[in-house]
Design a protein around this nucleic acid. Structure first.
Length: 233
DNA sequence: GCGACAG
DNA sequence: ATCTTGTCGC
C-alpha cells in the first residue's frame, strides 16, 4: 500500500486532507462513459503554467486551436501567486487557481480543454484535469509527461499505444508520440469524455503537423506562451 | 522493509 | 516546474 500523505508538508496537512476528501467525492461523479464525441470537437484549448519562484509569481496561458484548420483562434494569459508548493497528487491546488481565472477570460468557448497533468490517472481517481472538468462542467483531458502510477506494456513503437493499468483498471493510455529515445506521453480522461475520444484528440494534434511534437499542439503552444509572458523565452 | 510520486 | 553545456546521432 502506498502512502500518499507522507510527502505533505505539515503546514498544509489540514487543508490538503480536506481536499483529498473532495477528490474522492468528485471521482464518483465524473462522466467517463459518454460525454463528447470526436465529431463534436471543433475548438481545443491547451492550458499550461510557467513559474518564477524568485518573485513568487506564475503565469497560466491558454491557446485555442481549431481542429480543422489547425489555426490558433485565441490566446489568453493571466498572472497569479501560487498559494502552496507542488505536492504530488495535489497539482490542482497549485495550478488550479490560475486556470479558473484564465477560463473566465476566454471569449470563444472551447469544446475540449487539455491540461499538463492527469485526469483519472491519479491515486484517488481525480487529478488536475478531472477536478477542473468537474468544476467548469467542460470536457477535459489530462496529458502527463511522466507516469504517476500504473503500468503498461512496452516498449512502444512510434505511433503505438498501450493501456495503463492500475488495480486491474484501465486508467489511461501511454502513447509514443515521438520515436524511440523519447518517452511516451500519458493520456487520461478528465471529465465528460471517454478514453477512446480523449486518445484520438491527443493523437490528432501530435501527428497532423509538419513537424512532429511530443505534446499535442494546443499544449505545446500554451507552454510557449506562458513562458513568453513570464519573460523567459 | 524502504521508497517511488503529474508540474 | 526550473536551472543550463556539452554532446550524441541522424
Amino acid at each position: 500500500m502506498n502512502d500518499w500523505t507522507k510527502r505533505i508538508p505539515e503546514k498544509y496537512k489540514d487543508h490538503l486532507l480536506k481536499v483529498r476528501e473532495q477528490q474522492l467525492q468528485i471521482a464518483k461523479k465524473l462522466e467517463l462513459q459518454k460525454g463528447i464525441s470526436l465529431e463534436e470537437v471543433q475548438l481545443v484549448a491547451g492550458f499550461d503554467t510557467a513559474f518564477d519562484d524568485e518573485n513568487n509569481i506564475a503565469c497560466s496561458a491558454a491557446v485555442t486551436v481549431d481542429i480543422e484548420t489547425l489555426e490558433t483562434v485565441e490566446k489568453q494569459f493571466t498572472y497569479f501567486k501560487p498559494k502552496i508548493p507542488y505536492v504530488p497528487t495535489f497539482l490542482y491546488e497549485r495550478e488550479g487557481p490560475g486556470y479558473k481565472k484564465l477560463f473566465q477570460q476566454i471569449k470563444e468557448e472551447p469544446d475540449v480543454l487539455l491540461f499538463d497533468g492527469n485526469g483519472i490517472l491519479h491515486p484517488f481517481g481525480c487529478g488536475l484535469a478531472s477536478q477542473i472538468g468537474y468544476e467548469l462542467k467542460k470536457p477535459t483531458i489530462g496529458v502527463a509527461k511522466k507516469l504517476l502510477l500504473g503500468t503498461f506494456e512496452g516498449p512502444l513503437k512510434e505511433g503505438g499505444y498501450s493501456e495503463i493499468i492500475h488495480h486491474e483498471q484501465v486508467l489511461g493510455v501511454a502513447f509514443q508520440s515521438l520515436p524511440s529515445p523519447a518517452k511516451p506521453i500519458f493520456i487520461s480522461q478528465g471529465n465528460y469524455i471517454n478514453l477512446k475520444t480523449a486518445v484520438n484528440v491527443v493523437r490528432f494534434f501530435t501527428q497532423t503537423q509538419q513537424f512532429q511534437k511530443k505534446l499535442p499542439l494546443p499544449l505545446f503552444l500554451a507552454h510557449l506562451f506562458a513562458k513568453e509572458k513570464l519573460g523567459k523565452e
